[in-house]
Simulated scan of single mutants.
Amino acid sequence: MPREAEPSNNERAFILEALQQDIRLDGRALESFRDIQLSFGDEYGVADVRLGKTRVLARIAASLTAPFPDRKFDGIFTITTELSPMASPAFEVGR
């Protein structure tokens, strides 16, 4: 996965100054939370979470399959995630 870009000196100075003055770009106080909305989809395992203007859509699926006849007590557990490149330039499609 490619490294995230380091902030420039100007960006770093701006962030540090904003933190010292308790300022956020969206006008919220430094310790205030964004509005949270949670809704569940029509299908089982689908959730839509909104934090202010940020939106996350999550889908979870599971299936049971019969083990191979010669290995009846063995199983497989697999976790797969897909993250959009819109979330970060470090995320690649299909990886």
Rank of each mutant, 00 (worst) to 15 (best):
M1H: 04
M1K: 03
P2D: 15
R3I: 03
R3D: 06
E4M: 08
E4C: 03
E4N: 07
E4I: 09
E6N: 04
E6K: 00
E6D: 14
P7H: 06
P7Y: 05
S8F: 06
S8A: 09
N9T: 11
N9W: 03
N10G: 11
N10Q: 06
E11P: 02
E11W: 04
E11K: 00
R12Y: 07
R12G: 02
A13C: 07
A13E: 06
F14I: 14
F14M: 11
I15P: 02
I15F: 07
E17T: 15
E17N: 12
D22N: 14
I23C: 05
R24E: 02
R24G: 00
L25K: 00
G27K: 00
G27L: 12
G27C: 10
G27Q: 06
R28V: 02
R28L: 08
A29T: 09
L30G: 01
E31S: 12
S32G: 06
F33H: 01
D35C: 01
D35M: 07
D35H: 08
Q37L: 12
Q37V: 14
Q37Y: 03
L38R: 04
L38I: 15
L38Y: 03
L38V: 15
S39R: 04
F40S: 01
G41I: 07
G41R: 00
G41T: 06
E43W: 02
E43G: 00
E43F: 01
G45I: 09
G45F: 02
G45V: 09
V46C: 00
V46M: 00
A47E: 11
D48F: 07
V49T: 02
R50N: 02
L51P: 01
G52C: 00
K53H: 07
K53A: 11
T54Q: 04
R55N: 12
V56K: 00
V56T: 07
V56W: 02
L57K: 08
L57V: 13
L57S: 05
L57R: 09
L57A: 03
A58G: 10
I60L: 01
I60F: 04
I60R: 02
A61W: 08
A61H: 08
S63K: 00
S63G: 12
L64C: 06
L64K: 12
L64S: 09
T65W: 01
T65H: 07
P67Y: 12
F68A: 14
F68R: 14
F68H: 13
P69A: 15
P69K: 15
D70Q: 12
R71T: 13
K72A: 11
K72V: 11
F73L: 11
D74C: 10
G75T: 12
G75C: 10
I76K: 03
I76Q: 08
I76W: 00
I76D: 13
I76S: 13
F77K: 01
F77W: 12
T80S: 05
T80D: 02
S84R: 03
S84A: 05
P85A: 14
P85F: 13
M86L: 11
M86V: 15
M86P: 00
M86I: 13
P89Y: 04
P89W: 04
A90K: 03
F91N: 03
F91L: 04
V93N: 06
V93L: 09
G94N: 15
R95S: 11
